Amino acid sequence: MRTLLHRRRSVRAAVLVAVAGTAVACGGGGGDTGGGGDGSAATGTAAPHESSRLAGEELWLDPEGHGPAAVREARASGRTEEAEALAPLAEQPTAVWIATPENPYPEVERVSRAAAEEDRLPVLVAYNVPGRDCGLYSAGGAADVDAYLAWIGSFAAALADRPAVVVLEPDAVPHAVAGCEGVDPAARYQLLSQAVEILDRQPETRIYLDAGNADWVDDLPALAGALRQSGIDSADGFALNVSNYETTDANAEYGLALSEALEEGAPPGTPVAHFVVDTSRNGAGPPEDAPGGEGRWCNPPGRALGEPPTTSPDAPRLDALLWIKQPGDSDGTCGGGPPAGQWWPEAAAELVAG
């Protein structure tokens, strides 16, 4: 039986406050909590950075993922060469996206139970916020606030007390910060904060609120403020580079800077925000000839798989490298691709070859 490693954020915060208080009383530096930086202020001696909060966890590989399914189909049809070419996509755990307005309970429960039976940690993406994707290639989402809250409540209930990582609403916060027609930023942040609160009731759920990527929002204080209004202090951290191609190094640097921006003005004892990075397709980085705009992120050619998923990355405050976007899934009807989220065999083969 799995040892319960995760605890409710309120309990963890109280423990961190107690530990910090003990350290100060003994003349040592503070812990890795908001308002205390790296703990070096009290003594002038820098404390080592806190390691991954997911260290030791083994990620779950969904046999129904697009990569494993494509390999099985190719083998069953006698397309041995194709199956061998796509084999790397069947060997790495990827996230399961829950992105339809229908009741998410059955699919979330399937994933949660299957992972728990193997003593593995699943990664799920909750992607149904009203006004999703600012009306772009993944437009849609719940009809209104009430529909969304009912949806996320069902999502959370299906997790029960089983361990899971939830990446909450890719692009929702940075779109609101950058400006999105028809989206009231304050209302969206309040809705996301409610979603975090609902998910946080499940004792073994780790919540990472999406924060865009290293090439999007330059105003870190503004982004930090938006994340705080969206409930980041009750989550485990934030997610970067979801469905994007920015390099791991760029996102690690950006994530650390954003985490530090979140520390400023945080209530005493607030745990420092850690983060995860999507490395599924960033092995070659973004296209050099596309400094900005759609060509940088929407089905750019010549890309490659990134570093394999791991829960023990060697970077400050970085909890995991994850394959959140399933390699081979289209970004949208751009660059010759099918609709967003659909399997695109040619793109999958190109990523593996890259």
Rank of each mutant, 00 (worst) to 15 (best):
R2C: 03
R8A: 02
R8L: 01
R9Y: 01
S10I: 07
S10L: 02
V11A: 03
A13L: 04
V15G: 01
A20I: 05
A20E: 10
G31M: 04
G31C: 00
A41W: 08
T43H: 00
H49C: 04
A55G: 02
G56H: 07
D62R: 11
E64G: 04
P68W: 05
A69S: 13
A70W: 03
A70I: 07
V71I: 09
R75T: 09
T80E: 15
E81M: 07
E81Q: 13
E82H: 11
E82S: 12
L86A: 06
P88Y: 05
A90I: 08
W97F: 06
A99D: 15
T100I: 07
T100Y: 05
E102A: 10
P104G: 04
P104L: 06
Y105I: 09
P106R: 09
E107D: 14
E107V: 09
V108P: 04
V111R: 14
A115Q: 11
D119K: 15
V123Q: 09
V123D: 07
V125G: 02
V125E: 05
P130H: 07
C134I: 12
A142V: 10
A147E: 13
A150F: 08
W151E: 05
F155G: 00
L159Y: 07
A164Q: 10
A164D: 09
V166P: 06
V167G: 00
V167D: 01
V167T: 01
L168P: 03
P170A: 03
H175L: 14
V177F: 06
G179S: 12
V183E: 05
A186Q: 15
Q190G: 11
Q190D: 15
S193K: 08
V196I: 07
E204F: 00
R206Y: 04
L209H: 02
A211S: 06
A214D: 04
D215R: 11
W216E: 09
V217F: 00
G231Y: 01
A235E: 03
F238D: 00
F238Q: 04
Y245L: 12
Y245D: 09
T247H: 11
T247N: 11
T248P: 09
N251D: 11
A252T: 13
L258G: 03
L258S: 03
S259F: 00
E260F: 02
E260A: 13
E263T: 11
G265W: 14
G265L: 12
P271T: 09
A273I: 06
H274G: 08
D278T: 12
A284F: 15
G285C: 11
E288F: 08
D289H: 10
A290M: 12
G293P: 13
W297A: 03
W297Q: 06
G302M: 14
G302T: 13
R303T: 14
R303V: 08
P308R: 15
T310C: 02
T310F: 04
T311A: 02
T311D: 00
R317H: 00
D319V: 00
A320V: 10
L321T: 02
I324L: 03
K325V: 00
K325R: 15
Q326I: 10
Q326P: 08
D329R: 14
S330H: 12
P338G: 05
P338T: 08
P339G: 01
P339Y: 01
P339F: 05
G341R: 10
Q342S: 12
W343Y: 13
A347S: 10
A348Y: 02
A349M: 12
V352G: 01
G354L: 10
